[in-house]
Design a protein around this nucleic acid. Structure first.
Lengths: 154, 154
DNA sequence: ATTGCTATTGAGACGCAGTCTAGATTAGGA
DNA sequence: TCCTAATCTAGACTGCGTCTCAATAGCAAT
């Protein structure tokens, strides 16, 4: 399989793989670069479809395995919306590595937010329960600005 | 099918069904009373198993449909943890109809919390995005007190 | 460049949660 | 009691994700 052009992220991925004694393969490279072409969220089968339509043959299993790797490397983030796994390249909101999501129940649009006060209060909650915070999942659902306007017209 | 003893919740359910032009059936009654025997969270197939072991025959489809009804009636709440649907009878933490969850990543224990400040800040976030808040899902994952202790020993 | 060890891959079987279907049954108003 | 729409069941089906295992191919050492 032809090896696609490498980017900065690929160098990072390669370094992390080596550190773990794992290998870089054309498939992993293709998957990584495809992901970094996508703005916003995607689901594993979105990648499958993209590859199929481009004539690239990479199996579902490999996609899932590679996504797991990228998540544990921190290059990609996984999010679960109403039982559906979504992924997104890890990037930043206002300089924060972490963010949470607003999900529009009408059109499915996803917005990112970060609120340091909420983050802090979660730590307070954990202290109350003698709980060691490892992570969290926080989604606010409702109507986005566009859908509110649309609903107001009707 | 034999009709089980009715409780206060059944009266409420019955009233809501009537209001919607729907019918009370023995199956719905059995499912409701079984749910109200359960403390904490359960999954749809937990009910299936309970019924099977008690010799009660109610199909999976009926369980799912009835759970949907109970959720839309507000008697039961649905929550998604890591892609798995969990249900719980709607009840209150410190007088609040709503609460969120701490999930232990080691033993799976689930704790409930309510933090009015976090609730308020969510409204602030929505205002920033011109977003109409309908609901939210907020789970904090980590190690519960017991598992922390257990980990400390080892 | 070659070799050898072993990580990785692909295709499809599999598992599980949840939905759908079609025919049989039944709640509940007239 | 009768009638009819709502409901039930069993099981087929769907979709997402995981697993298997023989074949392939990185990559470190030679």
């Amino acid at each position: 399989m032809k090896v696609p052009p490498a980017g900065e992220e690929e160098a990072q991925f390669r370094a992390l793989l080596r550190h773990e004694g794992l290998r870089m393969t054309p498939e992993r490279s293709v998957i990584l670069s495809e992901i970094f072409k996508i703005e916003g969220h995607f689901q594993p089968d979105d990648l499958l479809v993209r590859f199929r339509t481009n004539g690239v043959r990479i199996s579902r299993a490999t996609i899932y395995r590679t996504l797991d790797l990228l998540v544990s490397c921190g290059l990609v983030r996984r999010e679960t919306f109403a039982g559906d796994a979504h992924y997104e390249r890890a990037h930043h909101v206002e300089g924060h590595a972490h963010h949470d999501h607003l999900v529009c129940t009408s059109c499915g649009a996803i917005f990112e937010f970060y609120n340091s006060e909420i983050e802090r209060l979660q730590e307070v909650v954990c202290r109350e329960f003698d709980f060691e915070l490892q992570g969290h999942s926080h989604q606010i659902s409702g109507l986005c600005a566009d859908c509110r306007r649309r609903a107001a017209v009707v």
